[in-house]
Nucleic acid binder design. Structure first.
Lengths: 229, 229
DNA sequence: CCAAGGAAAATCGTATACTATCGGTCTGCC
DNA sequence: GGCAGACCGATAGTATACGATTTTCCTTGG
């Protein structure tokens, strides 16, 4: 018998599938179904769903089941506002702590973002956009801060999946480049302002009101595992 | 048969017991034992322990059990640094959004803190100290931000339980009062500086290196429930 | 032909039973 | 007398089984 995956691995698979959009908002996450996909009983699926619920990217409706979260318009605004508040502090700390190698690292991510966009790889581009903010947090050298930013970024993924109008997305490139310049200059106030403007820009390009979201089968989302569904 | 508590109620009981220090760092949280205390099977205890683990106030050692977290010296520094970074953004947003009624609310909390300290009620005083920071976050009107601050404050409770030297504690009163004045003035930069100074003060009064922590029985911690242990 | 009611299927939530692993202790040997 | 190794009790982790609730579909009446 093929040995089963660890809880951490299963968690990571589901988390990535949601953040990368393979499991769209509203998708049903059946316990037995997921258990079959990963070859374990639902006993080990439950705590994983609860953990994802803690991070607000899954919602559990009592006696009905777990679903990928579909953040409301209010949720979308609140998460974005929270990012403006918290990442202001983060970018200030990062500006104080930034070394040349950090700046270089950030520019590399933006370059990769550009490349992904040029090659029409929307999924990769979106992943790197989030990665940029996490990397910025990492400059602070504080894992607690990094984890909080990561959580906020993952929640924003769902907002983007639901509300981003098809064409947009390129605006973040300029915002990131501008932000790096301010950090590189060491101007903490300007960096903070750039961060708020950037996040507000992202918010403004959303098409709140019109929820998108195609449906996809669970086994398709985990097709790379090569297991039966 | 007496109807059993909801998961949320059980969670709250354990959470409060830890944050208020009735369950000191290092305390063993046996699944069967907790199940008996609350009159449920361990099936419902497990997800609660996992949730507390997510919040980093409980650690689960595989095949050994769950324990109230005993943050290392490094953890203590990191949580404090994270608070300085994040609450800087929070206090700036709060300063921009503050209304007179908010200032009044904050001053009331400090007054209550003073009263608790005067009446030698250390537990209540400590609770109000945390409440002050949560209330400040609440001024932003953003639940996401408030939850994050609440989590950081609860983690700090364990640090204080482990490392605070017996005598100290009064320093936070002056820091809070000073902070309110800066917020009331609307001077965002001064408020941010006051927040950082205040949190640094708290850090500096800790006696890192010497871990305290008396042990207490589980049934004592939940004595107010009136159930058998 | 549509709507309302009910029954059956599906699925979630909980308890119980079982297995694996860990810590403590007792014994035997050095 | 002290240390090492094995046994035993305790407890965590997992699966299975069962009860509760919802959803779906079919039947029946208007």
């Amino acid at each position: 018998m093929t040995e089963s995956m660890t809880d951490a691995e299963i968690y990571r698979e589901v988390f990535d599938a949601i953040v990368e959009g393979r499991l769209p908002p509203g998708e049903k996450l059946g316990q037995d179904e997921l258990g079959k996909v990963f070859g374990v009983s639902k006993t080990r699926i439950r705590p994983i769903l609860h953990r994802l619920t803690e991070q607000k990217i899954v919602v559990i409706e009592p006696m009905r089941g777990a679903f990928v979260a579909r953040p409301s318009e209010k949720d979308a605004r609140e998460v974005n506002a929270a990012r403006q508040i918290i990442e202001e502090g983060v970018v200030r700390a990062a500006t104080r702590a930034a070394q040349p190698r950090h700046i270089k690292q950030l520019r590399e991510i933006v370059a990769a973002e550009q490349a992904a966009r040029d090659s029409r790889n929307a999924g990769q581009a979106h992943r790197l956009t989030g990665e940029f903010h996490c990397e910025l947090a990492r400059i602070t050298g504080n894992d607690v801060v990094t984890d909080i930013v990561r959580e906020l970024v993952s929640r924003d993924s769902l907002v983007v999946a639901l509300y981003q109008r098809p064409g947009s997305g390129a605006c973040s490139l300029h915002g990131h480049a501008h932000l790096i310049d301010r950090v590189a200059e060491g101007d903490e106030n300007a960096a903070a302002q750039a961060m708020r403007d950037h996040l507000q820009d992202v918010m403004d390009t959303l098409d709140l009101g019109e929820k998108r979201g195609r449906s996809q089968s669970l086994s398709n989302a985990f097709a790379h595992l090569g297991r039966a569904g």
